[in-house]
């Protein structure tokens, strides 16, 4: 499996402003979230990105892509019909090829060099020759924010699971019945990390099932091998309350300004009262 293209979705009603926010990356460089994301995706095996945006956002996003502008194709989701439909908008762009997909309202923080996470996921998909979704073990109180998978750990493979079921934003009741994965801490579930390598068949499934991504993923698991991989990284959902703040702190604490940020935090703790 050779993966050359990526689809990044940024058209959601709730998320479309998020990639425009500015953060300071771990090297201390100020940049829009979108740029940080494109740095990750395009520094590696991916040659071209299809960026799905809402109508009238094309120019803004084109502008924000900066130095990656030439390798980014803007795709427009003409009506707000949900996440699955946004991916399906890239059907022509992916042109029957497997593709890398990530969301634009998450920030991924790792110790790897930019592009390292994308590369790892794409190489894994290539070597296993199947769909792979990155996952992160997540406490059950956050289940309402993510899609989650259930499955079995692959023996002898650290952090790799065979997906058997997928539920979108399950309640803990559903999760406990269908998504318990042996080996995880009690009350923790494998939730989507926001990065996937998907086969071309997902486009066909999406168009037949009414563009529901979780259901399409579940169908992928029914049809064949579909793996979940824990990556050496954390994802931060910027759309949550204080999501951007948390993500920024995580990036800063992992970067060159760690001491400075820590000192400011300590000072804050000292002077503010609960």
């Amino acid at each position: 499996m050779k993966v050359r293209k990526a689809v990044v979705t940024a058209a959601g009603r709730r998320q479309r402003g998020i990639p425009l926010q500015t953060i300071i990356d771990r090297d201390g460089v100020e940049k829009p979230v979108l740029r940080a994301l494109l740095d990750e995706v395009l520094t590696g095996p991916i040659e071209e990105v299809g960026l799905v945006v809402a109508p009238s956002d094309e120019a803004t996003y084109q502008e924000l892509a900066g130095e990656h502008r030439e390798r980014v194709r803007i795709l427009v989701q003409t009506e707000a019909r949900g996440y699955g439909d946004a991916i399906a908008c890239a059907r022509d762009f992916t042109a029957g090829e497997p593709f890398f997909h990530c969301v634009s309202d998450h920030l991924f923080v790792s110790t790897l060099a930019p592009g390292g996470l994308t590369k790892q996921l794409v190489e894994l998909a290539a070597s296993e020759d199947c769909a792979v979704s990155a996952v992160q073990a997540t406490p059950e109180r956050f289940l309402t924010n993510f899609g989650a998978v259930g499955g079995q750990r692959l023996s002898g493979r650290d952090g790799l699971y065979r997906i058997q079921s997928v539920l979108e934003k399950p309640t803990p009741t559903e999760a406990e019945q269908h998504l318990v994965v042996p080996g995880l801490r009690a009350g923790h579930y494998l939730c989507f990390f926001g990065m996937h390598v998907l086969p071309p068949s997902v486009m066909e499934i999406l168009s037949s099932n009414g563009q529901n991504f979780a259901e399409a993923s579940a169908e992928l698991a029914r049809r064949g091998t579909y793996l979940a991989a824990e990556l050496p990284a954390r994802r931060y959902d910027l759309g949550l309350r204080y999501g951007l703040l948390t993500a920024q702190m995580a990036v800063a604490l992992a970067g060159r300004d760690r001491e400075d940020v820590l000192a400011r935090l300590v000072e804050l703790l000292a002077v503010t009262r609960g």
Binding site: R141, T171, T173, A186, G187
Partner: peptide, 17 residues
């Protein structure tokens, strides 16, 4: 299964519903 989480939830901030 489906009942266990309710015994783990010990603070409203952990409340998942």
């Amino acid at each position: 299964r489906g009942n266990q989480w309710m015994f783990r939830c010990g603070h409203p901030l952990d409340y998942p519903l």
